[in-house]
Amino acid sequence: MDLSVIDPISLFVGLVAAATPLLYAAIGELVVEKSGVLNLGVEGMMIVGAVCGFATAVTTGSPLLGFVVGAMGGAVLALVFGGMTQYLLSNQVATGLALTLFGLGVAALVGQPFTGVKSPRVAVVHLPVLSDIPVIGRLVFSYDLVIYLGIALVAAVWFFLNRTRPGLVLRAVGENHDAAHSLGYPVIRIRMMAIAFGGACAGLGGAYLSLVRVPQWTEGMTAGAGWIALAIVVFAAWKPWRVLLGAWLFGGVTILQLNLQASGFLSWLQSVGIPLQAQYLSMTPYLVTIIVLVVISADRTRASVNAPASLGKSFTQTG
């Protein structure tokens, strides 16, 4: 085994990019859940964002427009969920799952003419002096704009939830919708806005996949990223900065296990008497996420308090 071929800087740069689609989808879902709504349709919204973004960028030649339409696509799908769960009071878990099924189908239909088409390139912003600084330049200044905006989004969501009045109201709605309602807050309207925001973020995450990460449109290309995003919200205990941590952790372990494989780690293990299949290394991102969650949840005094109390419950305006 030759671990010296693993370059920690490249590893970090790689994980930041790998985590970005997860980060967008997860931070959006966090806001939705903070308002007391559980939308399990993240995968469906992501893939609709991916196809809308890709189709728009290809037809118009503008990746920027692609991102905008990708976000809109995710938001529109989310509003279907919102209408169903907020006005027709359908069950959130089942509606979210149905939304995934529906979204995957819609995306495949819309995307048919775009299979095998190449998208316009998204330019990486090169900061002339900064990105040339050794180490720091690559670690901090070598990304595309969408990545920086993703981190800014986390900061903005944190600020909104913890430092602004509307953020407080949104959390109040998520904690106890009946109380919020009796205080005169429009519970349903607030939740609809949160749901649309969540959909737009998931759509952006999907568009990032189809326009930057891959970049290409193929059916099923999100390959379960929406589910991981859902898990990251839980992992983060509904705290914005921990979403960033969770996404980076998951992305990081994924990249690390690929690096270990490429550097001959499995051969080394075999030479010391542990013949391990590659499948076991592929499990590590999931196992590490569980283990870290267990470690940080074990503090019984603080954990789980943060889960919005009304999560997943329908609100009816009676009387």
């Binding site: 790998a18 990460r213 891959v214 390959a223 990249i255 690929l258």
Partner: peptide, 10 residues
């Protein structure tokens, strides 16, 4: 796609 791309980069 995402994982294959990461593998390629690695």
């Amino acid at each position: 796609p995402a994982l294959e791309g990461d593998a390629a980069k690695t």
